[in-house]
Design a protein around this nucleic acid. Sequence first.
DNA 1: ATGAAAGCGCTAACAA
DNA 2: TTGTTAGCGCTTTCAT
Lengths: 347, 347
Amino acid sequence: MSDRGAPATIRDVARRAGVSTATVSRVLAGIGNPRTETADAVMAAVVALDYRPSAVARSLRMRRTNTFGLIVTDIQNPFFPELVQAADDAARGVGYSILLGSAAYDEHRAVHYLDLMADRRVDGMIVASSRVSDESWRWLAASPVPVVVVNAEPANVPITVITSDNRGGMQLAAEHLVGLGHRRMAYVRGEEGITADQPRVEGFRAACRAAGIPASDIVELHGNAQFEGGERAVAELVRSGLDVTAIACHNDITAIGALRALRAEGVRVPHDVSVIGCDDIAAASWVVPSLTTVAQQKAEMGRMAVERLLAMLDAGVGGIAPATIRVPMVLQVRESTGPAPTGGVRP
Amino acid sequence: MSDRGAPATIRDVARRAGVSTATVSRVLAGIGNPRTETADAVMAAVVALDYRPSAVARSLRMRRTNTFGLIVTDIQNPFFPELVQAADDAARGVGYSILLGSAAYDEHRAVHYLDLMADRRVDGMIVASSRVSDESWRWLAASPVPVVVVNAEPANVPITVITSDNRGGMQLAAEHLVGLGHRRMAYVRGEEGITADQPRVEGFRAACRAAGIPASDIVELHGNAQFEGGERAVAELVRSGLDVTAIACHNDITAIGALRALRAEGVRVPHDVSVIGCDDIAAASWVVPSLTTVAQQKAEMGRMAVERLLAMLDAGVGGIAPATIRVPMVLQVRESTGPAPTGGVRP
DNA sequence: ATGAAAGCGCTAACAA
DNA sequence: TTGTTAGCGCTTTCAT
C-alpha cells in the first residue's frame, strides 16, 4: 500500500515507474504520445502508491487555484443554501470548487473572508452579501480577480452585478392582489438600508398607482426582514383596527410572521386578509395556509454567477465590461391569497 | 498603488525594503528581533505594494493548508447550516478555514468531495453525511489525515464519531408525551436505512415500555424524513380512523407535514392530538401551532468536531484513540403538545 | 518520446 | 540581526 505518513509525490511515482517526473506529469495530463509501455508503468505506479497530485503544488506552479470564493450574507438564512448549491454544481462541472464564507450579517466577517480569499488566491469571487462597505466594494472593483456581485448594488462602482428584479417582482405581487379585488393594502418593509427594500416597495406602489389606487390606501409598516418583525408589525396593525384586505411583505420570513400574528388575532387567511411574501423559501410551502409569494430564481442566479466568472476568466483583463443583470422573479400562487372580501377585515 | 496584474511577492517587498526575503518573512511572522528601522522599512513596503503572502506557497512549504474539509449531506437541509456556521466560527478562531462540500444526498458526490479534499491536502475532515459507502468509511479511517464523523455511525470502523444521542432524545419525547397522559400514540419513522431512524424509534418504544404502555399501543407509520412523507402518513392515519392522541415524528420536517395533514383533516393540535418533532430547525417555531421538538445541539456539535480535529492534529499520529461522543438532545416544549384528551381523536 | 532543469512564492536551517 | 540557500511538489520549456 502507500500511506506511510506523507502522501506520495510525483517523484515517488517517477522513481517507481523508472521514468522522469516530466513524463509522469505528461502521462497524467494526457499530453504528447507516450509509448504504451511507459504510460502503463506510470499508471501502475500511480495506483500502487495511491498517488494524488497535490493541488497546492499545482496551484503554485500554474498560478491558478481552480477555486472560486463565495461570500454570503448568512448561510443560516434559508435563501442562500440553494444559491450555494447551484453555484457549487456549476463550478464542479468545470473543475472548480467553491470556498464558502458566511458573513453572518457582520461587516467585519465579510472583510475577513475577502482577505482570506485574496490570500488563498481564488480565481474569482462571488459576493452575495450586501453587508459590505463602500470601501470594500471599490477594492473589489479594482481587484485583478474577477468579481460578481449577487443581490447587492454597490453605488457608483463599476462591477458586475446579478440581481433579482426586485421592483418588477413586487409589481407582480401587487398586480396579483389588485386582480383579486384588493384595494386597501398594507406593505411590511424590510430592514432600513437593506438593498432590496427600496425597489420592492417602489415596485409595489408603482403597480398600485397604475391600477388607480391612491397612495393613501397603502399603509406602510416597518419590519426587520425577520419573523418577529412581521409578527409584531401585523399584530399592531390588527389591534389598531386598521382595515386592509391584503398584506404584502418584504420577504417570506416576514410574511410567515404575519401569518402567525393574524392567526393569533383570529383573522382568517385568505378569507379575511390575503398575505403575499417574497423569495420563495422552502418553509413557504410548509406553513398553513401555504404562502403565495414571488420567487427569486436562486439556483439560476448561482449558476449565472459562476458562468459569468468563467467568461471573465476566459476573456482576460478588461475583456468583459461590468454590467447589471436583472433576473426576473416569478409569481408563485399558493393558498394565502384570495379574493378580497366585500366587507372589512372582520365580517 | 500596486495591482499591476500579478500580486506582489515577497521578493518585491524585499527589494523595495532593501532587505532579504528571509527578513521580510521573519518580520511578518514576528520572529527574532529585527531592528526597528528594518521592521519599519518592511512594513512600509508591504503597505505600499499591498502585499499579501500567498497561502498557496505557504501551504506548499509548510505542508499544511490551515483548511478543514466539511462534507454535509445537503446544505439545503435546514439542519446543516447551523452546524456549518459553528464549525466555521470555531475554525476561523484558530486560523483555519472550511472547505465545504454538499453531497446533495448523492454518494458519488460525497466521494467526489472526499477526493477533492484529499487533493487539496486539507489538514482534517469533518464528514457529516451518512451517504458514504463502507468502502469510503474504511478509506477515511485509514487516512493519515484526522477525520471526525458527525451524525453517522459507520459500522466496524475505528473512527471518531460525534453524534446526537438519538435514542435518548426520543426517550425524552416519549416521556414528555406520557407525562401529558398520552398512551395510544403513533410514530412516523424516517427513511429506511437512515442512520438515526433505528435509535430514535427504539428510544421512543423503550420509554413507552418503561411507562407500562403495551407495544401494540404504538402504531408505526412510514415517512421519508421529508415534508410529504409526514403529510401522507398522517393523512392516511386519520382517514383510516385510527385513534391516537399523539404523534411523534422522526424529524421536524416530517412533523410539519403531519401538522398540515391534521389541519386539513380538521383535527386540532394540540387539543385533539399532540405532535412532537426532532431536530429543532428554524421553521419549528414558525409554524402554527409552533412545534414541540427535541433539539439537536447542532452548533455544539460543529464546534466539538473542530476542537476534536485540532486535538488530533496536536497529538500527532495515533495520539488520540477513536471514540464515539454522544451529545445529549434537549426537549423544547412549544405549542403542539398538550394534555391527552379524555375522549378519542374527535371528541 | 523522454529527460534535465528552472522556477512558482514561501520558510527555515545554517552562516556570517 | 540579517543574508544565502535549499527545498516544498508540481509543470513546462528546451535539449536530446
